[in-house]
């Protein structure tokens, strides 16, 4: 299989999604800034969304009754909505954390460590 010679298909999107997902994970692991972690989460969700849309896309699947059909897009929509909600709450938590600790360094959030 040669990605560069085949027409654009689901696999291409999956690879993009995989890269975005991995980047997000790495972002979460590497960033000590809470907002960086948040951005990592956004990337992860976005990567997942790419997969959903790819599986649900009639353009890419080429069949009328593709496996997911509209469901893929709907899932992506829900993911987007929930990501927005999650961002709002996470931001509020970060602000609270900042108010209490005067920092956004997640490594300092270890009050409950064993």
């Amino acid at each position: 299989m040669n990605l560069l010679s085949d027409p654009v298909g689901v696999s291409h999107y999956l690879i993009v999604g995989a890269i975005l997902f991995t980047t997000g994970i790495v972002c979460m692991v590497v960033k000590r800034n809470a907002l960086g972690v948040l951005m990592g989460i956004e990337l992860v969700l976005n990567g997942a969304n790419v997969n959903f849309v790819a599986f649900g896309s009639p353009v890419l699947r080429g069949e009328q009754a593709s496996i997911l059909g509209l469901d893929g897009q709907l899932m992506a929509l829900f993911v987007i909505l929930l990501a927005a909600a999650e961002a709002a709450v996470a931001l509020a938590i970060t602000l609270n954390f900042y108010n209490n600790h005067a920092t956004v360094d997640v490594d300092r959030a270890d009050d409950l460590k064993g």
């Binding site: 590497v30 997640v106 490594d107 009050d111 064993g114």
Partner: peptide, 18 residues
């Protein structure tokens, strides 16, 4: 003995998950 695993470091947990 096990409590030392609970480092309280968010990033480490993510790593564990991955």
């Amino acid at each position: 003995r096990l409590r030392s695993i609970q480092t309280g470091r968010l990033r480490q947990y993510v790593m564990f998950i991955v």
